[in-house]
Design a protein around this nucleic acid. Sequence first.
DNA 1: GATCTATTGTTACACTTTGAGACAATATTA
DNA 2: TAATATTGTCTCAAAGTGTAACAATAGATC
Lengths: 233, 233
Amino acid sequence: MPLPEVSQFIPHLAYDSVVFGFSKGKLKILLMEYHATGWFALPGGFVKRNENLEDAVKRGLYERTGLKDIYLEQFHTFGNKERHQPEVMEKILQANHLEVPKNYWMLDRFFSVAYYALIDHEKVTLTPDALSDSISWYEIEKLPELILDHGKIVQKALHTLRENLDRKLIGGNLLPEKFTMNELQAVYEAILGEKLRRTSFQRKMLSLDILDRHEKLFTGKSHKAPYLYSFRP
Amino acid sequence: MPLPEVSQFIPHLAYDSVVFGFSKGKLKILLMEYHATGWFALPGGFVKRNENLEDAVKRGLYERTGLKDIYLEQFHTFGNKERHQPEVMEKILQANHLEVPKNYWMLDRFFSVAYYALIDHEKVTLTPDALSDSISWYEIEKLPELILDHGKIVQKALHTLRENLDRKLIGGNLLPEKFTMNELQAVYEAILGEKLRRTSFQRKMLSLDILDRHEKLFTGKSHKAPYLYSFRP
DNA sequence: GATCTATTGTTACACTTTGAGACAATATTA
DNA sequence: TAATATTGTCTCAAAGTGTAACAATAGATC
């Protein structure tokens, strides 16, 4: 792998993405593990000289998840000078047997525009990039330590997600097309980190008039079968 | 005035600020008018190489308003490539009789991190910067046309301000230390762009338990005098 | 000083929303 | 057929909100 050249990219500017997914009742995010360092980081990248900011994020997400048309929200730009730790990036590059020139642009100070994404856990095809061993799901409750300020970025993403939960149609993006009311409630509970009342939740969701009710889902369990719902287009 | 050198600043990165004030029942923002162009813009600036992003914004606001400890919220970063219109900055510099070198850094593509600020209209001492004729207040309802995407930035700031109105203590930052309930209501109405019910508003504000009630304000008018309130520290 | 006017602070009442639980419906097992 | 677990709906109380009425009062008018 050749070293990226600064002529292709905007210097000093990067993005990081907090990609949320939901499976087995848990809220999870995607993390990358860099080669030979044991270091974990958010999936991020650089913006091309002639590329829209949001398109750069979509490009990065497409390369790593295979998904287009992802639900994306920009939530904060991190610009403290304490973010600048050139030895971190240097070690990551060296661990890939790359010869890092003096004053190489990737070692400069970077400002990072952070986005969160919501995706259907089942639909992704995870592909690590050239610098990393793996990209995979980690429970939001059990994250490893992350490089730089990525831990703070995750916390801020989660906080924003909670604030937006009532105002934007978030639940649907984390579930398949059709889902039961119980599954939707589990998503809300995982995001909020608290239990909700079943009856109140059902009444509230139905009163919002944003769900379509479909056929019942027979799971083979010995009890009443729940209806399937979808978000009204 | 000498041209700023790129060695001092982070290239490709700027900030813009939407500074809200309230007077005579109207919500207003600060705009600068550039020399000899008739062009209006938001107060903005660049980030020094060794400066925190937020400190750069505070520095710019201090230079223009004389205020420190300003209520600041970052709300979005604008990064579309359509923002890049080098002829605009070139004309602004030329109008100041500056010799603009070829490939001068200020003509490059810029990403702008946008903040809104809330200040007490009475406390400011407005000082234009070297490139502008004036900095002054404009009613949010009667803004002139702005350069680049600054009109969109204002709209997004206003939208965010409305969304945050219930969740953050916004009203107090736009008023003097002590104020009447009517003045507070006028701030809310100006931000939301709609009339509110007097009695519901009073009950709601008092029930939040965030206001201290002080002495009455005697204005000389022939009716019951209103109490003064302040936000509880 | 008595009365009038405009505005403020509070209360009353209807209506809506929410919390908490009860209850009926039902898919499968025993 | 009865038992069990879960779902969808309803009930009732508690809390919150829209609306209007009412009482309080600072100054003006007589």
